[in-house]
Structure formats: C-alpha cells, structure tokens
C-alpha cells in the first residue's frame, strides 16, 4: 500500500528525502497523501504550498502543483493562489517556527478571513533546519541551542491560537496517531473554510537529543503513552495536561468562506451592470 501511495503521489526521482533517520516528517507527509487518496481529489487541482524549514521540503517530494516559498509566508502565497483560482485545493505544509513565529501574522489573519485553505503543521518543537534553536512551541524549561539554560518563553498551542483567531476547523494529531491524523486532514480538506491540523512531529536529532528524550522509537512511544483525546482533555486541568499530547478535533464551525463571499460581490456587480444595460 505504501509503495502504491508513493508511486501515485510522490516524485520517486527526488527521493530519498533530506530528513534524518527517525524524523516524524515522512509519516505526516504520507498522512497528507493518504488523506488526498481517500478523498479522491483530482491530482491536477491540488496545490501544495510550503515555506522554509525541514518540513517545507515535503512540497518537492509530492507530485502535485507544488510551490516552496519564503520563510513564514506560505499561507500568504496560498491566499493568493486560492483567491485567484478557488477551484484549487490548496494545502499548506509548514513547521512550527514557520507558521507560528515568522508567519504568525498570516496564520491568524487567514483564520480570521476564513479562506478555504488547509494548513498541516509539522510541529516538532524546534528549528531543525538551522540546527536546534528553540521555537514558539518548545515547552517552557526545555533546551535548544539558543536556550542553553532552558527556555523561559511560554509555548504556543497552535491549534488553539488559530481557533481563537477564527479558524473554522482546528484539530490536533501526532506522528504516532496515523489513522486519526489522516482522518483529521481529510476532514480539514473537506471543510468549507480555513482548517488547520496541528500534528505533533518528532525530531530525535535536535529536540530529542538536546532534551534527553531517547531514541526516535522512545519519542513515538511517548506520544502513544501520553496521548489524551480532546473530549477527555477538556475535563482536565492545565496541571494534569502538562506533558500530554492532545489528539482530536478542537472545533468545527460553519462561517462564510472568503472566496465564496468575494464571488458573491462579483456576481452582484455583474447583475447590477446587466440591469443597468437593460434599463
């Protein structure tokens, strides 16, 4: 099955990928491909947009219309693509630094606008491409090369941030929870409006090693053993949720979608112009 998926949705001539052994990115990239397969989307109508970072290289490996843009700006490029041609299924693949630090402004405004794009976050709690600096999702107290004495920043909950900004679909998955994550990505792509799936990735090379999290397998086991479903999480205190990996759909709401609302303006102006002509 995996090889069929690779043949159909990847660009084998550009594999193997640049990711380290044990990295969670490959699993999440596969989840995206599987979700597209399950939905039966037209290959040629799917656009994959990425920014800069380890996970952003996924765009080059996937056989769709793919565009690898500048750091933090994937959502802004995606906004232009989607508005110019709303027929396209536009999917943004981004890391935690890309989407919530340098690109944080675009994230909250795309959520507010409720433009119908899907964002899949490869959230590995660290800047991997540049060698292990702390990111906005590095937990407080943990280490990075630029937080040698422990991170004193508080960390972002990306799905919660997007929901707070107006995202109409927000979910959380993990590298370990493959079936659930595929399902959330599917739901996100089908959703009419801005959707985000924040997926806990693993980075054994930098985040794992810096913070003594053990091997890649240990990190996967951690996700398995510390997962809390969304339904349960809402009944738990912040203290109880410390160190837990929350899985599930945080919110699904129906708001008017941006490109459809814009089309209504175009249609209305067209009708008015026609009426004026007939008068």
């Amino acid at each position: 099955m995996a090889s069929e998926l690779i043949d159909k949705y990847m660009r084998p001539e550009h594999l193997p990928h640049i990711w380290c052994p044990g990295c969670g990115n490959g699993i999440i990239m596969r989840d995206v491909a599987q979700a597209i397969e399950n939905l039966g989307l037209d290959h040629d109508k799917v656009v994959i947009v990425s920014g800069i970072g380890c996970s952003s290289r996924a765009a080059g490996y996937m056989d769709f219309n793919t565009i690898h843009t500048t750091h933090g700006r994937a959502i802004a490029f995606a906004t232009g693509i989607k508005l110019a041609n709303p027929e396209l299924n536009v999917i943004v693949l981004a890391g935690d630094g890309d989407i919530s630090a340098i690109g944080g402004n675009h994230l909250i405004h795309a959520a507010r606008r409720n433009i119908g794009i899907t964002v899949v976050v490869f959230n590995n709690n660290i800047y991997g491409m540049t060698g292990g600096q702390y990111s906005p999702t590095t937990p407080r107290g943990e280490k990075g090369t630029t937080a040698p004495y422990g991170n004193i920043d508080r960390s972002f909950d990306i799905a919660g941030l997007a929901y707070g900004a107006g995202a109409s679909f927000a979910a959380r998955g993990s590298a370990y929870h493959v079936q659930q994550t595929i399902s959330y990505i599917q739901q996100g792509i089908s959703h009419k409006g801005f959707s985000i799936i924040d997926v806990a990735a693993i980075c054994p090379t930098y985040y794992g090693r810096k913070n003594k999290k053990g091997s890649a397998v240990d990190m996967m086991k951690y996700q398995r053993d510390n997962a809390v479903m969304q339904d349960k999480a809402v009944t738990m205190t912040a203290e109880e949720l410390k160190g837990k990996v929350i899985i599930g759909v945080l919110a699904q709401v129906n708001y008017p979608e941006f490109t459809k609302e814009y089309q209504k303006i175009i249609d209305r102006l067209g009708r008015e112009a026609e009426e004026r002509e007939h008068r």
């Binding site: 656009v47 947009v49 565009i67 843009t69 500048t70 700006r73 959502i75 802004a76 490029f77 995606a78 906004t79 232009g80 693509i81 508005l83 110019a84 041609n85 396209l88 402004n105 675009h106 909250i108 405004h109 814009y262 303006i265 175009i266 102006l269 067209g270 112009a273």
Partner: peptide, 27 residues
C-alpha cells in the same frame, strides 16, 4: 470585482507581495 477580478487587503506588505506572486502562479 466589476471586471471579474479579485482584490484583497492583506494583513501586511509582506503578505501582499506573497499573495500577488501566488495569484500569478495560478495564472
């Protein structure tokens, strides 16, 4: 919108440039 085109006020100058390039990539 009078000629079937699209206008968007972006959140900043950087995203305005990005969206412009994105739209052009879409033809």
């Amino acid at each position: 919108p009078q000629v079937g085109g699209k206008f968007i006020q972006m959140e900043d100058e950087i995203s305005s440039m990005a969206a412009t390039i994105g739209a052009s990539a879409a033809g």
